Computed example of a mutant assay.
Amino acid sequence: MTRRARARRAAVTVALLAATATTLATGCTHQGAQDDGRGHRRSQSPTPTEQPSSSASAGPLLAVKIDNVAAARPQTGLDAADIVYAEQVEGGLSRLMAVYATRLPKAVGPVRSARESDLELLRQFDEPTLAFSGAQRKLLPLIDKAPLDAEPPGHASGAYYRGAGRAAPHNLYLHPDRLVPTAPGAGALTTGFRYGAAPAGGTPETSRTVRFPAARFSFTWSASRQGWLVAMDGTPDVMTDGEQLAPPTVVVQYVPVHSSRYHDVLGNPTPYTQTVGSGRAVVLRDGKAYDVTWSRPSAAGGTTFTAADGTPVNFARGQVWVVFAKAS
């Protein structure tokens, strides 16, 4: 374990002890709906459209690599994420990265392996904690050198567990508070995203589908949910509690995707999703589509989205999905 990780672990331990002492002192209790051993108590959490009043950051955020093949669904804890990034992996399949800053669910998963592209994407955050099941051997030195706290199984005692009813590797779950004791707050989301009133213009749109070579994402506007109902490969994307995901904002960001120097065990090249640069994107919010330009000049900065006249484009408050589609 690195010196940085040991220091982070010590801080986590102190915070957990302080939280425990506060709970015992106040005699507080927590009551709510039953969970399934993997999901969180949904009735005790704010809705995905709520945002905290304070922008101050209390520490690093948590990023978790999430399995996204059919055998991994339904997933757990994805609805609590502030941002969900969707990227292409080997064989044209997809994988997700869920980013948690304003609230932590009881459990997240299934957790899967990291990719080289993740290191560039995560540079925008201040030494985030990355939870993942592992990585290709040749990639591990790069992960160790990256400005993040890498926490695969074995680094954090009791943080990961195997869920019942599924075969490996689709049954690895994480207790987020074993890595990050408290949600750091919106101040940790140094993404460049802006939230507020809808921009002018836009084209009415009720659905949008993004296709990878062997996967697809569909988003259908729901006025009653004030969000975009998510479907994966033609199937509604529901959590373990049966609720279908409906993020208020979806971004289809067109980026360069090319083969990296890494391969899977079958010899398939690992795609590299380049998130530094600029290009076109489509922002979906409030039942409309907005054609915009994205820009991220350096890995250490976030991504801005602007209209044709250079005006910054606001997102709706709540969860944001960013799907990295291959630029033509």
Rank of each mutant, 00 (worst) to 15 (best):
L62Y: 01
S53F: 06
S57W: 12
T49D: 14
N68Y: 02
S54T: 15
I66E: 05
I83P: 00
I83M: 08
D67G: 09
A63C: 00
L62C: 09
Q75H: 11
V64K: 00
Q51G: 07
A56Y: 10
S53K: 11
V64Q: 05
L78R: 04
A56S: 15
L62D: 04
P52H: 09
G77F: 11
L78F: 03
P60D: 08
S54M: 00
L78V: 15
D79F: 04
D67W: 01
V69C: 06
G77H: 13
L61H: 09
D79C: 01
A58H: 02
D67S: 12
G59S: 08
G77V: 05
E50V: 10
A58S: 12
L78C: 08
Q51H: 12
R73G: 03
N68T: 04
T49Q: 15
A80H: 02
S54D: 15
D82R: 06
A81V: 06
R73S: 10
T49C: 01
A80T: 02
T49H: 10
A58N: 10
S55D: 13
D82Q: 07
S53E: 12
T49W: 02
S57H: 04
P74C: 03
P48Y: 09
A81Y: 06
G59I: 02
A58T: 03
V69T: 14
P60A: 15
N68L: 05
P52Y: 06
I83S: 07
P48H: 10
T49Y: 02
Q51T: 13
S53M: 05
G59E: 09
L78P: 11
A81L: 13
L61Y: 06
P48D: 03
D79K: 04
T47K: 03
S53A: 12
V84P: 10
Q51K: 12
E50S: 08
S53I: 09
V84A: 00
D79Y: 08
A63Q: 03
G59Q: 08
V84R: 07
P60Y: 07
V64M: 02
T47I: 05
P48S: 09
S57A: 15
T47P: 00
A63P: 02
P60H: 09
P52E: 10
Q51S: 14
T49I: 04
Q51L: 14
A63S: 09
G59V: 07
K65D: 10
I66V: 15
L62T: 06
S55R: 14
S54H: 01
P48C: 07
A80Q: 05
D67V: 06
D79H: 12
P48K: 12
A56T: 13
S55N: 13
D67E: 15
V64R: 02
A71F: 11
Q51N: 11
S55F: 03
D79L: 03
P52I: 03
